[in-house]
C-alpha cells in the first residue's frame, strides 16, 4: 500500500498519468474536478446565465462531463443551465442500450434530454445507408452526419454552447492523425478549446486536458453508470493506427499525451501554406470548406442512387456535380473524360 502523495494519511488508489502523483480517492476527485474547473475558468469557456447542451452518447466521457459540470456549476456558481443532446444513428442493437444510459443520465443529473435521429435529420438511418453502401465506407457517412447532427441539435435547442466530452487522449490522437494526413487546416484548429461552426454556437471541450485513464477511474470510483459499446458495423474501427501509437507511447511516458497537445497548440502554420477558407454550404447553410458541404454531397449521392459520391477526393465530386449540368458526355462512345459512374 502506498500513501497518498498529498499526505492526507489515506492509502493511494491510483497513480495519476499527468503528474505521477499517487492519490487517494478523495484527493483524486478533488484534483480532477479542480483541474476541469481551472480549464473552464482559464479559457473563460462559459458566460454566466447561459444554457449549455452536453453532447451525450451514454459513454464514459460524456457521462463524466455531465456529472462534473453539474458539480462545478453548483460549487463555483457558474450560473449555467444544462441540457443533454443525443444522436440516434439508427443502428439496430447499437444505440438502444446507450440511449437507455443517456435517459439514466437525464434522471440522475436532472437535465432535459433531446434525442435527434439521422432518420429525422437526413431521411436515412445508418442501417439503410449500410444496405446501400456496404460496410466499407459507412464510417464516413456516420462521422460526417454525426458532426452536423450535433450542430443542428444545438441550433434547434437554441442553446448558447455545445460541450463535447473530448479528452486529452482524443485531442492528442487528432493532432497525430492530422500530422499523418498532412491536414494543416485541421491540425491548426484541432487543439482549440473553443471552436465556432459558423452558427454562433461555440463548441467547447472542458475535458480537453483530462486523461482518459483519469476519466475512467473517476467514473469507476464515483460508480457512474455509463455504457461502452462497439459499433456492430465496424468492430475495431474505434482503434485507428494513431490511437494504437498513442497508447503505446503513453506506456513509455504518459506525459507524451500532454506534450503532443502542447505541440499542437504551439504550431503556427506557415503563411505560404495553402489553407481552405471556411464558407457556408450553398445548400444547407452549414459551415464548409467547399461550396457544398460533405453531408449534402453524401446525401445527394444516397438520394440519387450514387452512394459512392463524396467518398474520396472532394475535387472529383465537384467535377462530377459540375459536369452534370454541362452535358459534356459524348453519350457513351467512350471519347469524353466524364466519369459516368459518378453522375
Amino acid at each position: 500500500m502506498s500513501d497518498c502523495s498529498r499526505k492526507c494519511g489515506n492509502n493511494a488508489v491510483l497513480r495519476r498519468p499527468k503528474t505521477g502523483d499517487k492519490l487517494c480517492k478523495e484527493c483524486f476527485f478533488d484534483a480532477f474536478e479542480n483541474e476541469v474547473h481551472f480549464t473552464i475558468t482559464e479559457a473563460k469557456l462559459f458566460k454566466p446565465g447561459s444554457t449549455v447542451a452536453v453532447a451525450a452518447s451514454g459513454g464514459k466521457d460524456s457521462t463524466v462531463l455531465a456529472y462534473v459540470l453539474k458539480q462545478l456549476n453548483r460549487r463555483f456558481k457558474y450560473d449555467l443551465k444544462f441540457m443533454l443532446l443525443s444522436i440516434d444513428e439508427g443502428i439496430t442493437g447499437y444505440r438502444d442500450d446507450s440511449l437507455e444510459t443517456v435517459k439514466q443520465n437525464r434522471d440522475d443529473y436532472e437535465m432535459p434530454l433531446k434525442i435527434l435521429s439521422y432518420k429525422d435529420l437526413y431521411g436515412w438511418t445508418m442501417d439503410e445507408i449500410v444496405s446501400e453502401i456496404g460496410r466499407k465506407n459507412n464510417c464516413t457517412f456516420c462521422g460526417v452526419f454525426r458532426r452536423q447532427a450535433l450542430d443542428r441539435g444545438a441550433n434547434l435547442l437554441k442553446v448558447d454552447y455545445l460541450a463535447t466530452g473530448h479528452n486529452a487522449d482524443d485531442i492528442a490522437e487528432t493532432v497525430l492523425m492530422n500530422i499523418l494526413r498532412g491536414d494543416l487546416a485541421r491540425l491548426s484548429r484541432c487543439t482549440s478549446i473553443i471552436t465556432d461552426s459558423g452558427d454562433g454556437i461555440p463548441r467547447v471541450k472542458p475535458l480537453k486536458y483530462a486523461y482518459e485513464k483519469e476519466i475512467v477511474m473517476y467514473a469507476y470510483f464515483k460508480k457512474l453508470v455509463y455504457f461502452s459499446t462497439e459499433c456492430v458495423f465496424s468492430p475495431n474501427a474505434y482503434r485507428g493506427h494513431a490511437r494504437v501509437l498513442l497508447k503505446d507511447l503513453e506506456k513509455i511516458d504518459p506525459s507524451i499525451i500532454m506534450n503532443i497537445i502542447h505541440s499542437g497548440e504551439s504550431l503556427k502554420v506557415n503563411k505560404t501554406s495553402k489553407m481552405p477558407s471556411l464558407q457556408n454550404c450553398v445548400r444547407c447553410g452549414y459551415v464548409s470548406s467547399q461550396d457544398i458541404c460533405k453531408a449534402c454531397i453524401l446525401l445527394e449521392g444516397l438520394n440519387s442512387g450514387r452512394p459512392k459520391l463524396g467518398i474520396g477526393k472532394s475535387s472529383k465530386v465537384k467535377k462530377s456535380i459540375e459536369n452534370k449540368d454541362d452535358k459534356v458526355c459524348c453519350g457513351g462512345a467512350g471519347q469524353c473524360n466524364t466519369d459516368k459512374t459518378l453522375i
Binding site: 452518447s57 461502452s228 459499446t229
Partner: peptide
C-alpha cells in the same frame, strides 16, 4: 481484480 477497457466508445 478488475479490468476496464478505455478503448471502447460511447
Amino acid at each position: 481484480i478488475v479490468f476496464i477497457s478505455t478503448l471502447h466508445g460511447g
